[in-house]
Each structure stands twice: as C-alpha cells, then as structure tokens.
Amino acid sequence: MSTALATEALARRFGGLVAVDEVTLRLRAGERAALIGPNGAGKTTLVNLLTGTIAPSSGRIFLEGRDVTALPAHRRARAGLVRTFQIRQLFDPLTPLEAVMLALLAARGRSLAPFRRLRREEALLEEARAVLRSVGLEGLRGEPTRTLPYGAQRLLELALALAGRPKVLLLDEPAAGVLREESREILQTIARLPRSVTVLLIEHDMDLVFRFAERILVMVQGRILADGSPREVAGDPRVRAAYLGGSIDVGG
C-alpha cells in the first residue's frame, strides 16, 4: 500500500519543553487510524506541525512521498492535507453556505477571482449544499455561524474539512464537548468517508476510538509509545501504565 503521510524524526520544542519528540510515523493510504494520549501529550502540536501552522524544530514531513516540510500552510491544505480544530475555529459572521463555498473555492485555488460572481457558481453551490446535507446542516445554511448551536458548529467544522477535498484528514477531537447523540452523528459522517481519504482521528472517548480505528497510535510526552491494532494497543502494559492504571475497555 502506498504511503499517504509520513514524518521523519519530527520534533518541536517550546523553550525547555519538548512537545513533540522525534516522531516518525507512516499512514498508509486509506487507513483509519486514531491518535490517543493523555492531555498535553503533544497531539495537537503534532497536527499543527503537519499542517504547517507552526514550524518544526527539526525533522521532515512527507505528503504522498513529497517533502512538504517547507511548504506554507495554505499550499499543504490545497495539496489535500486537511484538518479540523479541537477548539472552535470558524468564521463567525459567515453563513455555513458561505463558509463551505469558500472551502470549495479555496481547495481549487479559485478564491482569488474578483470579478466572478458567487451566485453564478452553480456547480459549486450544488456541491456546497450536498456537503452541508451530508452533515445534516442544510436547514441552517443561511444562519450566521455565531448563532448556531454548539453541536451544529462542530458539524460545520467537519463540513469545512470535507469540502477541502482531503486526501489526508486530521481530525483533532471533532466531538469534543458535544452531546453523545451528536458525537455519534459526527462519527457516522466520518465513517462514511470514501476509502480514498486517509483519516487520523484524535479522540479521548475510547468508545469512539475503538469503534472507528483499525490502528491506534498512543502518544505520551511527545513520543509515540505504542502503535498497532486496537487489540494490541489495549493489551499493551506500557499504555495501561501511561494512563495511570486507568483501564482501556475494548468496546464490545
């Protein structure tokens, strides 16, 4: 199988703190992987490094075999490396339809068209509606984002990522803070994604993780401590120790 995303001794220090410590990993194309680890393990920092929001202290990043370490963030996004945010990162005054339209345009590198008319982009409008429908937000497409309920905002966060034509999708706790009902909906949307998309899910809810992932990576203090099938990882004594004796239940 071909490699979708890979890192080579990727590291990031904040002053004395090593947030990401020489992480080398490989995601195969189409894989459904999950990244877990205690608070402050460095998961979000790793995503930040991969997407180019922050620069690594050392190491390299490859997207489909191409070295993208020096590529600016927007070029990586356009190349199909797409993420969602753990903490709300939306466009407050825009409506979901506008936001998704923008994501569609940006992914095609067509946002810099001052004389095209948005309303004439019928094909894209149709696609935007379809994306919103797929996350169940079609009915709210005309409301300013800031007025949407929290659960709907999480779904919009996901919709923006889906509209970005992802090849690799990095989902940073997409269900953080939402109700059980809604988190199931979010997970179902992710599960429905075609196999052409590689997914790395960061999540604290082990129930969700074990239902979704074929492979689990465990990160502790900036390092990948364990990496394997859910069964292997759940049985790994080091992982159990890292979670301070807390048990990890393999769902079902």
Partner: peptide, 14 residues
Amino acid sequence: TSPFGLALRAIRAN
C-alpha cells in the same frame, strides 16, 4: 459578491 470578496471576509473573521 465574488469569491475574492468572500475570501476577504473570511480572512477578516479568522
């Protein structure tokens, strides 16, 4: 009302 205008508003927002 163009993609550019939309992109600018989005940049301003976030």
